[in-house]
């Protein structure tokens, strides 16, 4: 800074009192207590990745919840109704749908 010599001398009279010697220790101790909320750790990374995945879904959260409930309901209903038991797997049940000849008996 191009500041005049005399002004520089005057400004240098401004003093800073010594900080307490244990400030570094205090900060480090305080950070240990807050470690749980640090998201940069490996477990934090997993949580953040999951949140990012959810956030990246196009569906808004209420719609996502509703669609999940409907899907679970459909699967449970199919099991309890004995529909799926006749088939070896859920895939087979889903594939079966294409074999139905809806309304064919009435023709």
């Amino acid at each position: 800074m191009a500041i005049d010599k005399d002004l520089e001398e005057i400004l240098s009279k401004r003093a800073v009192p010594e900080m307490r010697s244990n400030l570094e220790h205090r900060i480090i101790q305080a950070s240990l207590v807050q470690e749980v909320s640090n998201n940069a750790g490996s477990s934090g990374f997993a949580i953040r990745a999951f949140k990012d995945f959810i956030d990246s879904l196009v569906l808004p959260n209420p719609a996502l919840s509703l669609s999940m409930v409907l899907l679970i309901g459909l699967v449970l209903g199919a099991y309890s109704g004995g529909v799926i038991q006749d088939y070896n797997s859920l895939e087979a049940y889903i594939m079966m749908g294409s074999d139905f000849d809806y309304g064919g008996d009435f023709l």
């Binding site: 401004r14 800073v16 009192p17 900080m19 307490r20 400030l23 205090r26 900060i27 305080a30 950070s31 807050q34 909320s37 640090n38 998201n39 940069a40």
Partner: peptide, 30 residues
């Protein structure tokens, strides 16, 4: 601490400011 004190010439406050800054860094390093 010296930088904080020059902005806010109070020892307790300057120490609090530095502590707050470092803890902010620790909580949210990103």
């Amino acid at each position: 601490y010296a930088a904080a004190y020059r902005m806010y010439p109070n020892q307790d406050e300057a120490e609090d400011i530095v502590q707050e800054a470092f803890l902010k860094l620790w909580r949210r390093p990103e």
